[in-house]
Design a binder for these strands. Structure first.
Length: 825
RNA sequence: GCGCGAUUAGCUCAGUUGGUAGAGCAGGAUGUUUACACCAUCAAGGUCGUAGGUUCGAGUCCUACAUCGCGCACCA
């Protein structure tokens, strides 16, 4: 009898030692399992890629939950003799990590611009490295049997190659384009973010009603209203019957009279306010769409820092928050203020990571076109490629009601903005040619912005001293980098007043010559411009101005795009970039598509959808067969568990230290069904700690009672014991089936219950009598031994530490329990 | 506004083809026998959110409603 068994089970003493045993065995690596004869070389595969934790700090309970569920699946698969790979990694989490480091630097009084890109990145990388090490250590403490030899990082060299390869392919297929679209600008983080990274918050604000000519219009944001020159109403609204679409009228507005145009569109809700609104296309998604529809003039009012531009005249340079009341004051003094509703609740968009208020802006950014048909993929769009496998059941989402949510999201999907104005991340693999001529162009602001677009191939420019055949460069006025090259094919000289504004393809932003003159003046404040000012119109042909590739162009005068990619771009490649793609590796061939993707339902869109997109498009196959979505871990009072909750939050590692890993695992699995949130409280965990000790004590009894028996042959069973063994076999059969259906809650509960209330309470108690009275003692002992053996194997995925430790004390111990066979007879 | 989920014992939750409700924790009583007080034995605890419907039979299927939570859209 092992000395240790005489004392109560001590998880603290056991767990670290056991994990080392497992790790040293090499069995986390399927290749080793094959080499050592544990797995057949031609066995079916079972693979999971670990959702890579962000390198922003520590593991939390959500991570613990995913590690537990995945480890259970992996351990069972390994015991079933499958070629089992669980591939670990971490995520650089671009914005999240960068903003975290910025905050840390702030405490030292340092700003990222003081350091410069290179130095700042060094700091981020140092932080990321430290976080990474902590996280990996914590994963090991959680008992995760991850194959560390294959560890990946979303920003390492191999993954960078995958990202660049994917980008280039999409670029070449015309799926990635650069253009001016309305995007979510985060003035605090100074970057664009995707629709999914915005969070709506309810805020109390004021709702103003102003007189706008004969109309009354409502707004919560008077500071954006300077340029409003379109007034929109519903075509069926009887109140405004006398106005027709396209009618023009002069109204007195903030800075004097302006000419307004009537737009009639069904987008208007007649019930809301007065049923009339004015629009600000540059700073509102909906207004932008309306402006696109009717080819309306768009004008920027607010700059990248949330300050008003010169169009605001006396308010120019003011922060919008500060200007708001002053503008209202001015309108009030002009007699244009009708009313103020003080109890208006407005939903404002904020940035998920920085908390900054989102300001929609029209900006030059990179996008993934989700609607373009792809000839190489059966003329389907990315949207269709995402929908199809789920609709056809090739990918199953558990629980399946999330499939509806998934479809709904995809149907409403807009082009995915993938460029970010941050430093930490995959640099966009695009280079622009550096040339002096680019500066001479100097064509700034919305005039250029509206004309230039990499999606179309010819462009017209004016106001430059160039001749036919000249190569010229385009400069992005906001970022200051050159983004394109071309050749002049035609030059026409004319005067401002004669510019053909009907040519909507090229001059769609200008309704009237006056608008053009105003724009001219704004961009060239030093020049006198009027209708008779001579201008040149250059017809320009795009040559090959942009280099998109894996490597930078050889010659020197190329400069790389400053932006980095949305972190989810690299995460989307995760199921195959980790297996060696774009190289044709054996791993890729063996383990892809992966078997299961297990993660929280909160990243269904962020991540799962994008993995399906990338895999379907780049590989022409699904990334995984099943998606298992677990719920959010909450505190006992229902709050989402996070560090900010302080005491209420449970640190998984504290719990492990206190009650043992096995206890935490059971608490996370029993009663936790997919998709439903898990309320975790310490009491439950303590309860399952008792269970591990129960296993320990029962094992002690069995091992003590059976040590004098050499052979445990079922032939020795009496009728009662034979029946018990049959019952157990039935249970195992049931449980095996339920494991395949991912019903871990049921399985863990059944095993718990069987072990305690059948094996311990009935079988062990019964055996005592038989052994004591020496009546059918051999039968009893055989049953005890076989039961323990089978139960340890079945329980192992759920409570691996205590079962492994007990297993090692069985006299005929041969190998680690983790590679023993899952009972199947 | 649209959609999804939840509502079952004091608490946390299971309950898969519809067949007379199940765990854990907490609380109560008793007890120490070849493992285990991180224990055992016993008892108590539920008109399964409400109202209808389908059915021989409904926690389970259908309809409506209520409350809570979540997602999406709108919000001029």
């Amino acid at each position: 009898m092992n000395e240790k068994l005489l004392k109560p089970y001590n998880p603290k003493e056991t767990e670290e030692r056991i994990y080392k045993l497992w790790e040293d065995s090499g069995f986390f690596n399927p290749d080793v399992c094959i080499k050592k004869g544990v797995t057949e070389a031609d066995a079916e595969h079972f693979s999971i890629v670990l959702p890579p934790p962000n390198v922003t700090g520590n593991l939390h309970t959500g991570h613990a939950l995913m590690l537990v569920i995945q480890d259970i699946m992996i351990r069972q698969a390994r015991m079933q003799g499958k070629k089992t790979l669980w591939l670990p990694g971490t995520d650089h989490a671009a914005i999240a990590t960068q903003s975290k480091v910025e905050k840390l630097l702030e405490k030292e009084g340092i700003r990222k611009n003081d350091l410069g890109r290179e130095e700042f990145l060094k700091r981020v990388e140092k932080f990321a490295k430290e976080s990474h090490d902590t996280i990996i250590n914590q994963c090991k403490k959680m008992g995760a049997t991850l194959d560390w030899s294959r560890e990946a990082f979303t920003l390492d060299e191999a993954r960078n190659l995958a990202v660049k390869t994917a980008f280039k392919k999409m670029y070449d297929d015309g799926l990635i384009y650069r253009g001016h679209r309305i995007v979510n600008w985060d003035p605090k983080g100074q970057t664009v973010i995707s629709d999914d990274e915005t969070i709506y918050e309810e805020r109390k604000g004021k709702f103003y009603t102003f007189k706008y000519g004969p109309f009354e219009i409502g707004t919560a944001r008077p500071e954006t209203k300077f340029g409003d020159k379109y007034v929109v109403m519903h075509p069926d609204d009887k109140r405004y019957k006398k106005w027709d679409h396209g009618d023009k009228l002069t109204v007195e507005w903030i800075n004097g009279p302006i000419e307004a145009t009537i737009i009639k569109d069904k987008i208007i809700d007649m019930e809301f306010g007065t049923g009339v609104m004015t629009i600000t296309p540059w700073h509102s998604h909906e207004d932008f769409q309306l402006a696109e529809k009717y080819k309306l003039y768009k004008e920027q009012i607010i700059d990248k820092f949330g300050k008003l531009l010169p169009i605001a005249q006396e308010f120019s340079g003011m922060k919008i928050t500060e200007a708001r009341e002053k503008i209202v004051e001015k309108l009030k003094n002009k007699g244009l203020l009708v009313s103020v509703d003080e109890n208006y609740t407005n939903r404002v968009a904020t940035a998920e990571r920085t908390g900054g208020m989102i300001e929609p802006q029209i900006m030059l950014q990179w996008f993934v076109d989700v609607n373009k048909k792809i000839p190489a993929r059966g003329n389907k769009s990315l949207k269709e490629l995402m929908l199809e496998p789920v609709r056809e059941g090739k990918i199953k989402i558990i629980p399946n009601h999330f499939e509806k949510v998934y479809f709904n999201w995809i149907e409403n999907l807009r082009d995915w903005c993938i460029s970010r104005q941050i430093w930490y991340g995959h640099r966009i693999p695009v280079w622009y040619k550096k040339k002096e001529t680019g500066k001479k162009m100097g064509f700034a602001g919305d005039i250029v912005n509206q004309v230039l677009d990499t999606k179309t191939k010819t462009y017209r420019l004016r106001d430059h001293n160039l001749s036919v055949g000249d190569e010229i460069a385009f400069e992005d006025s906001s970022a200051g980098n050159i983004f394109g090259y071309g050749k002049i094919t035609k030059i026409e000289q004319t005067i401002v007043g004669k510019i053909d504004l009907e040519d909507k393809k090229h001059w769609r932003t200008y309704e009237k010559t006056e608008d053009l003159i105003k724009a001219f003046k704004r961009h060239h404040p030093d020049k006198e411009v009027d209708e008779s000012t001579p201008v040149w119109i250059y017809t320009y042909e795009f040559t090959s101005p942009i280099h998109c590739g894996i490597e930078a162009p050889k010659d020197e005068d190329w400069t790389q795009d400053e932006d980095t990619l949305d972190t989810w771009f690299s995460s989307g490649l995760w199921t195959f970039s980790t297996l060696g793609w774009p190289n044709k590796t054996k791993d890729l061939e063996t383990y892809h598509p992966t078997s299961v993707l297990e993660t929280g339902h909160d990243i269904l869109f962020f991540w799962i959808a994008r993995m399906i997109l990338m895999s379907q498009y780049l590989l022409g196959e699904i990334p995984f067969k099943n998606v298992y979505l677990h719920g959010m871990v909450r505190t006992s009072d229902g709050k989402k568990m996070s560090k900010s909750l302080g005491e209420k939050a449970i640190d998984p590692l504290d719990i492990v230290a206190k009650y043992g890993n096995d206890a935490l695992r059971m608490a996370m699995v029993v009663g936790n069904t997919p998709g439903n949130d898990l309320k975790l409280n310490e009491n439950d965990i303590r309860g399952y700690g008792k269970f591990t000790n129960k296993i320990w004590n029962a094992s002690r009894f069995v091992l003590e009672q059976t040590k004098d028996v050499a052979v445990f042959n079922p032939k020795n069973y009496d009728a009662e014991d034979r029946k018990s063994e049959d019952e157990l076999k039935n249970l195992i059969k049931e449980v095996t089936k339920e494991m395949n259906e991912y019903r871990f809650s049921i399985v863990s509960e059944k095993l718990y219950h069987y072990f305690w209330h059948t094996f311990a309470d009935i079988i062990i108690e019964r055996s005592k009598k038989k052994i004591l009275e020496d009546k059918n003692a051999l039968s009893a002992k055989t049953l005890l031994h076989r039961h323990l053996n089978i139960l340890l194997r079945t329980l192992h995925p759920f409570v691996p530490f205590v079962t492994e430790e007990v297993w090692s004390m069985i006299p005929d111990y041969k190998s680690l329990l983790m590679v023993e066979k899952w009972p199947n007879d």
